[in-house]
Simulated assay, not measured.
Amino acid sequence: MNDVVSPKHIAASLTEHWSPRVVAELDDSFVKVAKVLGSLAWHSHDNEDELFFILKGSLAIEMEDRTVVLNEGDTFVVPKGVRHNPVANEECLIMLIERKSTLHTGTEVTAKTRSLADQLRPV
């Protein structure tokens, strides 16, 4: 993966919601994009931080002690161990940067959980 990519265009081309795709690798991290709508699932990543960057639209990240609302161009890092639930009231395009060891929905497994193999599929 050593090509020029447009995360926004790749995210826009996705046909499934909440199904991130790896678009680049950076040391021990993946850069992923996703098209999201509705609620993902309450979950946490015990050993990894998770960076959200909004490519288009708006995303709320619910946490037990607060909710942050991110708009296009905004970035927020959910610290490791913090339970959170991303929610998009309208379709939203996001970019994520997270360690390669980060499980999509942490230890929670739902119908929206995607394996690393799914996330590595060609776009």
Rank of each mutant, 00 (worst) to 15 (best):
E64S: 05
W18H: 06
T110S: 05
D74H: 14
I94H: 06
R99P: 09
V69R: 14
K56F: 02
E25H: 06
S13Y: 03
V87E: 06
D74K: 02
L26E: 09
K8W: 02
A11P: 02
V31H: 12
H43C: 09
L51V: 13
R21E: 00
K56P: 02
D118Y: 07
E25A: 12
D118M: 14
N89E: 13
K80N: 14
H45P: 00
D118H: 06
V36R: 00
V5M: 13
H9C: 12
H43V: 13
V5S: 11
E90P: 12
E25D: 04
K100G: 15
S29A: 10
L37V: 01
G106E: 04
S101Y: 13
V78I: 15
R21P: 00
M1N: 11
M63E: 10
R66N: 03
V82P: 03
G81N: 08
H104S: 10
D118C: 05
L93P: 04
I54Y: 01
E62D: 13
T110Y: 03
F30P: 01
K56E: 15
A12K: 05
V4E: 15
E50Y: 01
R83F: 08
K8N: 04
H43L: 05
V78M: 12
Q119E: 12
S58I: 13
I54T: 13
S115A: 06
F76W: 06
K112H: 04
A111W: 06
K100E: 11
S19L: 03
F52C: 08
V123E: 12
L96A: 10
R83D: 07
D27W: 09
V78C: 04
G81P: 07
R121M: 08
I54N: 01
V82Y: 02
I94T: 09
V78E: 05
F30R: 08
A11D: 07
W42K: 14
E50I: 09
D65V: 14
K112Y: 00
R21T: 04
L96T: 14
F53D: 01
T105P: 06
S101M: 12
L37T: 15
T107E: 11
L70I: 00
S101H: 07
